[in-house]
Design a protein around this nucleic acid. Structure first.
Lengths: 182, 182
DNA sequence: CGACCTCCATACGGGACCGTATGGTCCATT
DNA sequence: AATGGACCATACGGTCCCGTATGGAGGTCG
C-alpha cells in the first residue's frame, strides 16, 4: 500500500473541514477517505488537535495573502475594493473553511488562526480606505463595516441563498454604500 | 424529586445552545444540569432531535417578533432603522443562539427555522427601506446588505471582538452607509 | 545478509452520547 | 384500599470517536 505524507492528511482534512466543519476533522473518517488507518495519522501527528492545527495553518498560508496579491495588481483603490469584493463574493462557495472556523471559534486550534487572518484582512481594508481619502479612524470603521458585509454575505449565501437575488447588482450597492461620504 | 415540564427541558436546552452550540443540546448533559436523568427527557420528547426542534421553535416564537414590535413603536423609518441596529447590536452577546444556528445550518432541525427567521427579518427590512423611499428592488438589495452587516458584525463581536473599536461610532457609520443614495 | 529505521495495519481499551427496556413512585380517581 | 396513568431512575446495548500498544512490511546501510 502507498505511503502517506503529512500533506496527504492535511489535504483530506481540508476537504472535510470545508464540507463538515471542524468536527469533521476526525481521524477515523479521514483515514477511511485516504484508504489508510489511524496508525498512519498518529505517526505523522501526535494527536487529532495537532492534525487540525496543521490543517488550519496550511489553509492560512495558502489562502490569506493570495487574494490581496491579486487585488494589488490594479492601481485605483476603488477598483481594488471592487475587485476584492467581486473575487471574494463570486466564489463564496469555497469560503466554507472560513465559516467552519467562525463556527468553531472557541476551539483552541482555531482561535489564533482566526485572530491572525481577521487582523490581516481588516488591516488591509484599512489601508484601502485610507487610500480612498478617509481619516484613519473612519477608515477603520469602514474596514470593519466592509468586512462585516463580507462575513454576513458569506453566511447568507451558504445558509439561506434564496434571499440573495441579483448578486451583480448587490455588489454595486455594497460598494456605493461602503465608500459613501457623509 | 421535583417533576420537570417540557419547558424545563427546552429552557436548559436554550442555555446550552447559546453556550455550546447545537452539539451542546445533548440529552445526558442537559439531564445532569437539570438534576434529572435521561428517562425524563425521553418521556417528554421522542428523541433528541425533537427536543432540539422544540427548543429552536421556542426561541423563534420568543425572539423573532419581539425586536420588530419594539422598533415599530417609533414613527420615523430612519429612526426605526437606527433603533433596530442599536437594539440588535448592543446586546449582540445574546445573539449567540443565532450564531449557533448559522453554525449548524445543515442540521435538519435548524434549517427550516433559519429560513423562516431570515425571510421574516429581511422582509421587514425591505419594508423599512421602501418607507425610506427606495424602489422595490433597491430596497431588497439594501435589506440584504443591512442584514449582512448585522450577521457579520455579530460574528466579529463574538469571534474576534478586539477588532471592533468604537461601537457607537460604528453604528452611525453603518447607518449612513446603508441608507446612502447614489 | 542482518540490524535498523520508517511507516503503517491491527487490535484493544477507554469515553461520550443515543435510545430502549423495565420497574418503581406518586397522585388522582373510583 | 385498589387501580391506572403520569413521570422518572436505573441499567443496558450500541455507535462513533480518541488514543495506545504492538508487531510487521519494506527500504537502507553496514
Amino acid at each position: 500500500m502507498a505511503r502517506r505524507t503529512r500533506d496527504d492528511w492535511t489535504g483530506v482534512a481540508l476537504r472535510a473541514l470545508a464540507e463538515g466543519g471542524v468536527a469533521a476533522v476526525a481521524v477515523e473518517p479521514l483515514a477511511a477517505r485516504l484508504g489508510a488507518t489511524k496508525g498512519s495519522a498518529y505517526w505523522h501527528f501526535p494527536n487529532r488537535e495537532a492534525l487540525l492545527k496543521a490543517t488550519l495553518e496550511r489553509w492560512e498560508r495558502e489562502h490569506t495573502e493570495a487574494v490581496i496579491e491579486i487585488v494589488e495588481s490594479v492601481p485605483e483603490p476603488l477598483d481594488k475594493l471592487r475587485l476584492l469584493f467581486a473575487t471574494v463574493l463570486e466564489h463564496v462557495e469555497d469560503s466554507a473553511v472560513e465559516l467552519a472556523m467562525l463556527a468553531a471559534k472557541d476551539d483552541p486550534a482555531v482561535e489564533p488562526v482566526l485572530r491572525r487572518v481577521t487582523d490581516r484582512r481588516i488591516g488591509y481594508l484599512e489601508e484601502l480606505f485610507a487610500e480612498l481619502g478617509f481619516d484613519a479612524d473612519v477608515a477603520h470603521q469602514r474596514a470593519v463595516l466592509a468586512y462585516s458585509v463580507y462575513l454576513g454575505q458569506a453566511q447568507l449565501l451558504s445558509s439561506t441563498p434564496h434571499v440573495v437575488k441579483a448578486r451583480r447588482q448587490l455588489l454595486e450597492e455594497t460598494l456605493t454604500a461602503v465608500v459613501c461620504r457623509a
